[in-house]
Design a binder for these strands. Structure first.
Length: 554
RNA sequence: GCGCCCAUGGCUCAGCUGGAUAGAGCGUCGGACUACGAAUCCGAAGGUCGAAGGUUCGAAUCCUUCUGGGCGUACCA
């Protein structure tokens, strides 16, 4: 609806230009908004005020010209008013509203989808945790946000690929192998001190036991240097397997797991650095190579090859992003923990040096999570093996509640995650509020069917019978859904969806409590059943986009 | 020191590229189940939007300074 009105306004202004009523100028972004007050109409625009400065005229006068030029061919407008300093308020004809429900019914599970992305090939990279231990709660938020951004982009017509970058080439992998090695020895009863820089977690012990069970005495014969590479690979593969399982239980499936090691094959990184050096982005200082990231606005230059001749993580990351673009992605979205924000200018420098424009990359920062249990902070440390794993959270609070909790806040703001609160199946836990609305609708449909009212379709009902104010509010809310998804896709802000669903559920619950859907009046019952059905469709689609289930009963 | 992020009722947060009287949820207080699910609904109290300046018809939103908190500032990843 907003779009329709924006179109009408655009045409009207063009007409005013042609007639010379307004001085021609660049069109501002036409913003149509929902006024807080009903008295201000169904929709409103500040267009006339936006134009006032360039036109150097009274905004109310401009508004008059615009309104005169409006060509409401479809006949959707009941009236249009000028208010306050120059707002244009639109009142939509009551009959027109309910015709909007036709789309909902016909598109059904596709309602909310769009072709905004036009099939653009786009990649969302997220989680990308080192396979040195199981995923923990700290990874969970970024995981859900990345997944939902991918889902939103998918329904918005993008060709989306979800990717997990495995940092399996750094020295923390060697640390992993050493950790298992020393654990093996302590398990054999050797009285050695377990190194404090190794991973202390119980999962290391489990891995060591597993290896002893498999290999038995064969282990004894191998030297430390032989053993560690084997242990490293074994542990990494096994941990990664566990990570995949946990993610799947959390509703997340990746299209691609990309190994950092692969980048080094065929001297890929070496050649990249050579090219960059020829292009003048790299200079030498002793035996280290520096990338001139300051040319692109970074605060200092960055090392790409260390004094010992090994490339840095940053060097590999440039190669990795180059690889992404070579695979045909025209846009890449990286979901990073907020503690990596200092890395952003460097990354942008990197992609520009390989010839990409800045808008080929979006970085979404996800703030860290404060984990609480009944209001008391829970301390975590990966190295010490003290953390709440993702698996534990899924088992304890459930996939739906966990996901919903992570999605309710702007990713850029800090989030308190209270395990006890998330677990509570009560009105303190918002996810049940919306799921309950969906279950309630399903229940109404079952009851109606029992009483001889099959689920109606658009053509079978007289929507003119829906005359209540609350019904009008419901239809309006339903109509907002596609715009909302588009906005979320444009801004990469999933949190808007939970807020929307909550509002819709609230309007529905309120309507339900005040009015009976199923009554003795057959025509009215059918009309209301239809309305409620469309609410159910939107709830289900919206929850689906969050990866949260929409239960028929609960 | 420098850089990024955050600051909105008792608590947790929205506020849609500046718009009309700042909104939810939780908590508190008071009400509603012999008809479709009370995990629901209705009502009330509660805010000088961290502070001070500035920009303009108009600021929670933009600019400057300050205060408080988080993070970063590696030849780690």
């Amino acid at each position: 609806m907003k779009k329709k009105l924006a179109q009408l306004l655009k045409k009207a202004i063009t007409l005013c230009f042609e007639k010379g009523l307004l001085t021609e100028c660049a069109l501002p972004f036409i913003e149509v908004e929902l006024p807080r007050e009903n008295a201000h109409g169904d929709y409103a625009t500040n267009l006339a005020m936006m134009l006032a400065s360039t036109q150097k005229r009274n905004p109310r006068k401009i508004a008059e010209h615009i309104i005169d030029a409006l060509d409401d061919a479809e006949g959707i407008l009941e009236s249009v008013e000028i208010a306050g300093p120059g707002f244009i308020n639109f009142f939509i004809k009551k009959e027109f509203w309910t015709t909007l429900l036709k789309d909902v019914d016909e598109l059904a599970e596709r309602y909310g989808a769009s072709t905004l992305g036009q099939g653009e090939k786009i990649q969302v990279e997220f989680v990308s945790a080192n396979p040195t231990g199981p995923l923990h709660i700290g990874h969970a938020r970024g995981a859900v946000i990345g997944d939902v951004i991918a889902r939103i982009l998918e329904v918005s017509g993008y060709n989306v690929s979800r990717e997990y970058y495995i940092n399996d080439a750094g020295n923390q992998m060697n640390m992993l192998g050493r950790s298992v090695y020393y654990r093996l020895r302590t398990l054999r009863g050797e009285t050695i001190e377990f190194p404090s820089d190794c991973y202390q977690g119980e999962y290391i012990t489990d891995l060591a036991k597993e290896i002893i069970h498999m290999q038995g005495d064969a282990l004894q014969e191998k030297s430390k240097d032989e053993l560690i590479p084997f242990l490293t690979d074994y542990a990494a593969a096994s941990i990664l397997e566990g990570i995949k399982e946990d993610l799947q239980a959390f509703g997340i499936v990746f299209d691609c797991y990309f190994s950092e090691k692969k980048l080094y094959k065929d001297k890929g990184i070496a050649r990249l650095l050579e090219n960059l050096q020829q292009a003048g982005f790299i200079y030498k200082e002793g035996s280290t190579l520096w990338f001139r990231t300051t040319d692109f606005g970074d605060e200092k230059d960055r090392v790409v090859v260390r004094e010992n001749g090994e490339p840095t993580y940053f060097a590999a990351d440039i190669g990795y992003h180059k690889n992404k673009y070579e695979r045909g992605f025209t846009k890449v979205i990286d979901i990073w923990g907020a503690d990596h924000h200092g890395y952003i200018p460097r990354m942008y420098a990197g992609i520009q040096a390989i010839g990409k424009s800045k808008n080929a990359l979006d970085v979404v920062l996800v703030q860290l999570v404060n984990l609480l249990r009944d209001g008391v902070p829970v301390a975590m440390s990966t190295r010490a093996g003290e953390f709440v794993t993702l698996r534990e959270v899924i088992d304890e609070v459930g996939k739906d509640a966990a996901r919903y909790n992570f999605l309710m806040r702007r990713s850029n703001s800090h989030l308190d995650f209270d395990l006890e609160l998330a677990k509570r199946q009560s009105n303190e836990n918002p996810v049940y509020y919306v799921q309950y609305a969906h279950a309630r609708i399903a229940s109404i449909m079952r009851m109606a069917e029992e009483r001889g009212y099959p689920v109606p379709s658009y053509g079978e009902v007289d929507l003119g019978l829906l005359t209540l104010e609350e019904e009008h509010t419901l239809v309006k809310a339903i109509d907002q859904f596609p715009e909302l998804i588009e906005a979320s896709a444009r801004t990469l802000e999933p949190h808007r969806i939970p807020f929307y669903i909550n509002d819709l559920a609230s309007v529905f619950h309120s309507y339900y409590n005040k009015n009976r859907v199923i009554s003795d009046d057959g025509a009215l019952t059918t009309a209301r059943l239809f309305l409620v059905k469309t609410v159910g469709i939107v709830l289900k689609n919206a929850l689906g986009m969050l990866g949260v289930s929409a239960p028929e009963r609960m």
